[in-house]
Design a protein around this nucleic acid. Structure first.
Length: 492
RNA sequence: GGGCCGUUAACUCAGUCGGUAGAGUAUCUGCCUUUUAAGCAGAGAGUCGCGCGUUCGAGUCGCGCACGGCCCA
């Protein structure tokens, strides 16, 4: 591709010249005694009493190089940080220095030496020995502007990570967030499990699945759209508290808010209700925020968000009328709702049920207004086919959704454990599917059989991890929090 | 799926009215032993995303395509 590029050609020649001098280009026998972080800690602890004869064997990638002829300053970086080194011909000898002059920014090096302070006060490794650990053939992007081109940043994320420290920080934050969720649940006795990614019947959500095929079994399989039905089978099996931090897959468009492959946390707790989970959710998100940010509030795209509970709770109906401007008398009236949608310029597919119309209106009119953490509760049965009916109103379910920063972050409910009702709800979904709704749930007979063995009263919840990471890292696009976001293949 | 914007040296970007390609960084050569976007002097480096068209002449204008970004659905 860039094989003809002059810079790369020169680097290849350099590598060949080094090899001709019997220099190993890719050795693996250098032993590191200290990371950058360890050396910095050592210096910090000793303060004025640093032993400048102590030897450190360090390694990393050269990130900067300032040559003064017979002496050179470099910066090198390992995974813990960056340090300056000073390479002097007087210290390492003429021959070794001549060899070092052939190293480039981007190469990996191993240095053995002592620490000292330069005139400007910067602690620096004075090289007694330096050797090449890996020759880089391609030059890194320019040091000052870094790598900006978004397409290159996503396709060659390694360059993005090398060049842009803030990007590196986002992904470290991401890992910390996931670990905080995990620790919170483990602490409360939840069992972390793994359930199938390839499923014969995709269930647990309303979405279009990816299809694949198992040759030996001669069987069509789907990439999961959610782990829900498998996790509830485990609750039936006696794991009263389970969770899975999972990748699920939805065959939809990509955008700043959607990647076809995304990360979800899903957990189930027996003998709990959706109300218990709302309390748990406040505690859990508060814990994660405090752990990761060290405080309970943050700024997302100009809005300050405070995670301190208790959070506002309002019913779907109230949300629609108060924030969506829909008259309460209109809420059950399909035709009036359609008229209203039209007047608001919201397009709605004709076949949609009242519940779906309401959700569509909610998405457009209400969701963007829910900036501070807010629970919306009481969703209609027809759009919640896996949720338990509300005791006070059999058309409603014991369900909540959590909104933060104008986006849905979590969805939870008391689980439907009545197998007869579950079967009826599946059949209802199948009817929708036959009527042309490709996102309707599939019938899962095996799951109904599982329920017939009895599932303890249970509540469960799914959390959109990517979205929450976006909030805590102030990322406008989901691609900024997914290491390798889905992009189109480059044509020949 | 629709709209707008982008794609020029390895990287970040200029490029006027259509007249034959520019800068900084990086690279190469020379000088330089406490610099940190080191410095000074010099040099090399381009399929202007791809294709077709208009034109005497296209990085520039038109059409199509590819990829990407943002917004809308």
């Amino acid at each position: 591709m860039d094989e003809t590029s002059e810079v790369i050609r020169q680097r290849r020649e350099k590598a060949r010249a080094l090899a001709d001098q019997d220099i190993e280009l890719y050795p693996n026998d250098f032993k590191v005694s200290h990371t950058v972080d360890a050396v910095k800690k050592y210096i910090h602890q000793r303060a004025a009493a640093v032993d400048n004869t102590a030897m450190f064997a360090m390694a990393g990638r050269i990130t900067g190089l300032r040559s003064f002829g017979k002496a050179t300053f470099i910066h090198f970086r390992d995974y813990t940080g960056q340090l300056q080194a000073y390479i002097k011909q007087d210290e390492i000898g003429k021959q070794a220095y001549a060899l070092f002059k052939q190293f480039d920014v981007g190469d990996f090096i191993g240095i053995k030496g002592n620490v000292f302070q330069t005139r400007t006060g910067e602690w620096t490794l004075l090289a007694r020995e330096i050797r090449l650990l890996c020759k880089a053939i391609r030059p890194l992007p320019e040091k000052f502007h870094g790598l900006r081109d978004p397409e290159k940043r996503y396709r060659q994320r390694y360059l993005d990570l090398i060049m842009n420290p803030n990007v590196r920080d986002i992904f470290i934050q991401r890992t910390r967030i996931v670990q905080a969720f995990r620790n919170f649940l483990l602490e409360r006795g939840f069992l972390e499990v793994e359930t199938p990614i390839m499923q014969p019947i995709p269930g647990g959500a309303e979405a279009t699945p990816f299809k694949t095929f198992h040759d030996a079994l001669g069987m069509e399989l789907f990439l999961r759209i959610a782990p829900e039905l498998y996790l509830k089978r485990l609750v039936i099996g006696g794991f009263d508290r389970v969770f899975e931090i999972n990748h699920s897959f939805r065959n939809e468009g990509v955008s700043t808010q959607h990647n076809p492959e995304f990360t979800m946390l899903e957990f189930y707790q027996a003998y709990a209700t959706y109300k218990d989970l709302m309390a748990l959710t406040e505690e859990m998100f508060g814990f994660v925020t405090q752990q990761v940010l060290g405080e309970m509030h943050f700024t997302y795209q100009g809005n300050t968000i405070d995670m301190t509970g208790p959070w506002r709770r309002l019913t779907l109906k109230d949300a629609l009328s108060e924030l969506g401007g829909i008259e309460p008398s209109m809420l059950g009236d399909r035709e009036r709702l359609l008229d209203f949608a039209r007047s608001e310029g919201i397009e709605i597919r004709k076949t949609r049920r009242v519940g779906k119309i309401l959700m569509k209106l909610f998405d457009v009119l209400v969701e963007p207004k829910l900036i501070e953490p807010t629970f919306v509760v009481d969703y209609p049965v027809e759009i919640s086919p896996l949720a338990r009916r509300s005791s006070s109103d059999s058309n409603m379910t014991e369900r909540f959704e959590l909104f933060i920063g104008g986006r849905e972050i979590a969805n939870g409910f008391s689980e439907l454990n009545d197998p007869v009702d579950q079967k009826r709800r599946f059949l209802d979904q199948v009817a929708d599917r036959e009527a042309g709704d490709e996102e309707a749930h599939y019938m899962d007979e095996d799951y109904v059989i599982a329920l017939e063995y009895g599932m303890a009263p249970t509540a469960g919840e799914g959390v959109g991890i990517d979205r929450f990471v976006m909030l805590l890292t102030n990322a406008a696009s989901i691609r900024e929090v997914i290491l390798f976001p889905q992009l189109k293949k480059i044509g020949q």
